[in-house]
């Protein structure tokens, strides 16, 4: 059935919790209120306070206790209310959760999914709009998942919950209500580390992940009317990374535009570009192009400034057109 991105999150959580009694959810306001975005609405009612629990406003505690609960046999799915608020928990995520398997020589593991709404365009300003994926994609031991569509939300969230290692599951706030799509009722899994070509094309490739995949698809549609054939590759997970899919599309079209909402410098687009440069340079017909958020500390509040920050379909279209003409 057709549903929003947000409904896909909620219904997947519900389906997984019905299937596996080890799954617990907790975080700020996830219980009675059902989450500030309503992603967990109705879940406490169905599964009880032990499995859907409001926690104190303390991010390190949310993640640190989830690590302990995971080690003692549960499958915690903690929510960080906004990705911007994840930083007090970075030590627990990076130095504990992501490192526990390695530092214990494989004798302990942390099967945990941290859900965090990220991204801007919702008047969230500096501290309710950030893209945080580059910080965490750098961390071996962690997985970083960024779905673009309701269908992918379901298959990737179910896979993340089944995964034996810690997963950061980033949901774009702008996608929550604006992106709709068909989602089958039955359970299915999308393996972590498999990108998907969301649109076939021959003139150039746009490589993106998360919400900007949707913006890229809009741009590609407009460009098709001008006779420019754009391929759109959705990475879906940036760690593990589907290097083969990246190289395949780069070799196929010979022109690559990497698009992300996170700011440019040190962004994950640099990693994608470097891979192509290392392994497919001689298949390219143009320099790799990156389109990203500007290098300012974070997204401003005033609509004029916010709009100027965002990587819109129009900006993608312009960059892609320029690249196609190269």
């Amino acid at each position: 059935m057709a549903m929003t991105y947000l409904e896909a999150v909620r219904e997947t959580l519900r389906q997984e919790m019905r299937r596996d009694a080890r799954i617990i959810i907790y975080g700020e306001d996830v219980g009675v209120r059902g989450g500030v975005f309503r992603a967990t609405e109705g879940l406490q009612e169905e599964f009880g306070e032990d499995r859907v629990m409001d926690s104190p406003l303390a991010e390190s505690a949310i993640i640190g206790t989830a690590i302990g609960a995971a080690i003692n046999g549960l499958r915690p799915v903690p929510e960080i209310q906004f990705a911007d608020f994840i930083f007090p928990a970075v030590n627990q995520i990076v130095q504990e959760a992501a490192r526990i398997r390695y530092r214990s020589n494989g004798t302990f593991g942390v099967p945990m999914v941290i859900r965090a709404p990220y991204g801007g365009g919702i008047h969230g300003a500096l501290y309710h709009s950030q893209c945080i994926e580059a910080f965490f994609a750098h961390v071996p031991g962690l997985k970083v998942v960024m779905p673009a569509t309701p269908y992918d939300v379901k298959g990737l969230l179910a896979s993340s919950i089944e995964d034996e290692d810690p997963v950061l599951f980033l949901e774009h706030k702008g996608a929550y209500r604006s992106i709709r799509g068909e989602v089958p009722d039955e359970r299915y899994l999308i393996p972590l580390g498999e990108a998907e070509v969301k649109r076939e094309g021959t003139d150039l490739s746009i490589i993106s992940w998360g919400m900007t995949v949707n913006s890229s698809l809009k741009a590609a549609e407009n460009l098709a009317k001008e006779g420019v054939s754009v391929e759109v590759l959705d990475l879906r997970t940036i760690r593990p990374l589907d290097t083969e899919a990246i190289l395949t599309t780069a070799r196929k079209t010979g022109k690559v535009l990497v698009v992300h909402e996170d700011n440019l410098t040190g962004g994950f687009g640099g990693e994608v570009s470097a891979l192509i440069a290392e392994h497919a340079l001689f298949d390219l017909d143009a320099p790799i192009r990156r389109l990203a958020g500007p290098d300012v500390p974070a997204m401003p509040y005033a609509p004029s400034l916010e709009h100027a920050f965002l990587v819109t379909p129009e900006k993608i279209e312009a960059a892609a057109r320029e690249l196609a003409e190269f």
Binding site: I63, I67, G68, A69, A70, I71
Partner: peptide
């Protein structure tokens, strides 16, 4: 890094109670 295990202990206890 000190004190991180204090949270793990609380989480272990949480899981024990739920289980």
């Amino acid at each position: 890094p000190v004190a991180t295990q204090i949270l793990h202990a609380a989480g272990v206890a949480l899981a024990a109670r739920i289980r």
